[in-house]
Amino acid sequence: MIATNSSEPPAPTVAVRWARWFTDGWITTRRNLIKIKRVPDVLVFTTLQPIMFVLLFTYIYAGVIDIPGSSYKEFIMAGIFAQTVVFGSTFSGSAMAQDLRDGIIDRFRTLPMSPSAVLIGRTNGDLLINAISMVVMMATGLIVGWRVRSSFLEGAAAVALLLLFAYALSWMMAYLGMLVRSPEVINNVSFLVLFPLTFISNAFVPSATLPTPLRVFAELNPVSALVQAARQLFGNVRPGPPVSDVWTQQHPIATVLIGIVIVLSIFVPLSVNRFKNISSR
């Protein structure tokens, strides 16, 4: 027999759909939290590696690199924060690719769940990992002598900006993970792209010290804007090396906020749409 419209079940109401969006997002987030608990690699990456970076940079380079008017420890911390959260955003890419390979995406797609839930759970997982990293890094930083020289609220705003920037990147990585479908490729490519992106910036050295082509790149690099914004909000910028007069360096907080909005408004719809049409193998 062939369908008649009378046999269609009623579509869920808007309220029900929003409630499902929320609960489904939470259930898939919980799935990723359990994974963090069970796969110690992720936790090691999020806790030990940041501690190592803070110690290496502050003790090895602090004596060599001279930042006029500031201490290198103060200067470097925002750079380490930014680099760590940027790398922390890549789990979403490899995890989506792995889920596709394992076939569990097909299971999810045949369930009457919200189509954005898996992505929300995935990016929330990265957000939590990065939040843990931030706490660990800030505690380590405080021990080695880094200080928040602004107010508590501005410090909190700096943390929020770092986490939001990485959260937006997670959506981009999730999309790439579904496009590329190979966790190995995603890991290698993000390493090859993100390492130069975080190093050719003002994260570890003042961009003014770089040779011209690198300096131009560093000044326009969104990671530089993030680092500069975090430095300003933590009160770690002191009269010293002149900040580049490029707009993104003069208005780093606005730049980062605009960047976050642009990335999210492109990659959230793109990722959800891709998810709705994807199938393993």
């Binding site: 994974k35 069970r38 796969v39 076939g103 045949t110 193998r281």
Partner: peptide
Amino acid sequence: GIDVLKHPGSIRPLIGVSGQYAAVDEN
């Protein structure tokens, strides 16, 4: 009686699927 192509959201609550590749979360 429900059109699978037009109303996938109404189909999903009715079906169960088990594939050749076990779609379970390893962790």
